[in-house]
């Protein structure tokens, strides 16, 4: 039977997992009696869940409240820098993205991660008026995941070309690129009419084209550079002699004989 490959997550998976393998969880500590208590108190109603994970406060909020929460964090709690923001793709499992903002308080050396879940196809409010670093970070999030950001001053692709199709960090996007990616450069440089002549771009770095005699030598024997490839030619494989073993001398132990 053919192996079933899920289409909603084409990233690499473990080829073997023990039947009794139990995945532990990184311990989550309570916020009470830590130096994050005041932060959670200030956020009040907005907090859906909060805990301390590996030394940093994690606050779960509703996706609609992100601007209000970051505003409180900036103006009342002293988190004056938004050092990073991005998303995690949970479309296959839950049909939503997980967005996070990594906040830094330079006066008290505290870090908070604000986390929210956003349904597929919905847009998030831009925090660019509060933190200018969001200008590039939100553009990158849009480019990589296709998450629309409301009221962003210049929401445009940032790392990929403007006319690119697809969002590379989605779990549905294959590592070597999709159909569009394999034709992008051919179409761009030569034009669509050259597709038949050039063929799709090969993004597998380990691929060997045996008909390409300019970049690959033949397996087993040598030919001059650029010799035409002829599929019909029968060439006896001959190896060069070494001091220790003569591979050309057929003995019963050699694999060719056993076939």
């Amino acid at each position: 039977m053919r192996k079933y490959v899920p289409k909603d997550n084409v990233q690499k998976k473990a080829y073997y997992t023990d039947r009794f393998h139990v995945v532990p969880r990184v311990p989550r500590e309570k916020v009470i009696d830590t130096h994050f208590e005041a932060t959670v108190f200030n956020l009040g109603e907005y907090v859906k869940d909060s805990y301390v994970e590996i030394g940093q406060l994690v606050v779960h909020i509703d996706a609609n409240d992100n601007f209000a929460v970051l505003k409180i964090l900036k103006e009342q709690c002293g988190y004056t820098q938004c050092s990073e923001q991005s998303a995690v793709d949970y479309l296959a499992k839950d049909g939503e993205f997980e967005l996070f903002w990594q906040m830094l308080n330079v006066n008290e050396a505290k870090r908070v991660r604000v986390v929210c879940r956003l349904k597929e196809g919905l847009a998030i409010e831009s925090v660019e008026p509060l933190f200018k670093s969001a200008n590039f970070a939100e553009r990158e999030m849009f480019d990589m995941f296709g998450i629309k950001v409301n009221n962003h001053p210049f929401l445009k692709r940032i790392l990929m070309p403007d006319d690119w199709e697809g969002h590379p960090l989605l779990k549905t996007y294959p590592l070597f690129g999709d159909e569009f990616a394999s034709w992008y450069e051919v179409d761009k440089i030569f034009g669509k009419e050259y597709r038949d002549i050039i063929g799709p771009e090969n993004r597998d770095p380990g691929k060997i084209d045996i008909e390409d005699t300019k970049r690959f030598s033949r397996v087993g024997y040598e030919v001059p550079f650029g010799t035409e490839y002829n599929a019909d030619e029968e060439v006896e494989v001959a190896y060069s002699e070494t001091a220790l073993v003569n591979y050309n001398k057929k003995t019963s132990k050699q694999l060719d004989e056993r076939r």
Partner: peptide, 14 residues
Amino acid sequence: TQGMRPPRGEVYVP
């Protein structure tokens, strides 16, 4: 052959 399997969780380390 399989690689290490860290526990479930998230971390940001500056």
